[in-house]
């Protein structure tokens, strides 16, 4: 079975390490915060200027001056700090954030990512995504393996405008955990109950399949 959004978030959460400063994008990446493994501490960075994002406020403590990068009302966790957008992107562009998790429309075998623009259809803007992929060394992309029409999102070459070039090394989809190196996708894990054949069929770019592909652990 393909992973649910929650399972996908759970698998990504296993990549978290104690003491990590982490930036989570909008969508599935946001859910990762719900599955931080027991016994470790991470601090969430929100690029509008908050390091140490806490849970949503209660009805009584909602504050219009306290939002995250998704423009949702949030709280500050104990030990948080608040700063300007320039300071926030100094953290991101300066490589100080330990892990970035973001969604994408497409990823290719060269580690290129397209996530912000569908010409003629979806013109919203890149927000902080271009800075995040250019500034971070450790990036995990989360997305469904194929579109609703069954088109692979793991390509030989991205067809949409790029968010970043040659910057993605790890992808967690609803079917598999895949690494990108030497111009190829490398199949590392498969979702429980998902066959290697299905993953191969839904991966358009060159995929290296080892003899043994373990099932994901949560």
């Amino acid at each position: 079975m393909a992973l649910t959004r929650e399972q996908l978030a759970k698998r990504v959460a296993r990549e978290l390490q104690d003491g990590y400063y982490v930036n989570l994008g909008i969508g599935i990446p946001t859910l990762v915060a719900n599955y931080v493994p027991k016994g470790i501490e991470v601090m969430l960075q929100s690029e509008n200027g908050l390091l140490g994002m806490g849970p949503f406020p209660t009805e009584e403590t909602v504050d219009a001056d306290m939002i995250n990068a998704g423009k949702q009302t949030v709280t500050a966790a104990t030990g948080a700090s608040i700063f300007s957008s320039a300071e926030s992107f100094a953290m991101i562009r300066g490589g100080h954030v330990d892990l970035t998790v973001l969604g994408a429309f497409e990823v290719d075998v060269e580690g290129n990512i397209a996530s912000y623009l569908i010409p003629g259809k979806l013109i919203k803007g890149m927000g902080g995504a271009m800075d995040l992929v250019a500034g971070a060394d450790n990036i995990i992309v989360t997305m469904t393996h194929a579109s609703k029409d069954g088109e692979s999102k793991l390509l030989t070459k991205c067809s949409l405008p790029l968010t970043g070039a040659a910057c993605i090394k790890k992808v967690v989809t609803d079917l598999a955990f895949i690494e990108i190196a030497d111009g190829k996708f490398w199949l590392r894990e498969r979702a429980p109950g998902v066959s290697v054949e299905e993953i191969v069929a839904k991966t358009a770019g060159e995929l290296v399949v080892p003899d043994h592909v373990p099932e994901m652990q949560f």
Binding site: S85, A86, S88, F89, I92, M126, G127, G128, A129, M130
Partner: peptide, 15 residues
């Protein structure tokens, strides 16, 4: 006309 500019680049352009 909309000139889409990455958020960190925009902050740095102002700074």
């Amino acid at each position: 006309e909309v000139e889409l500019t990455p958020q960190g680049t925009l902050a740095e352009k102002m700074r």
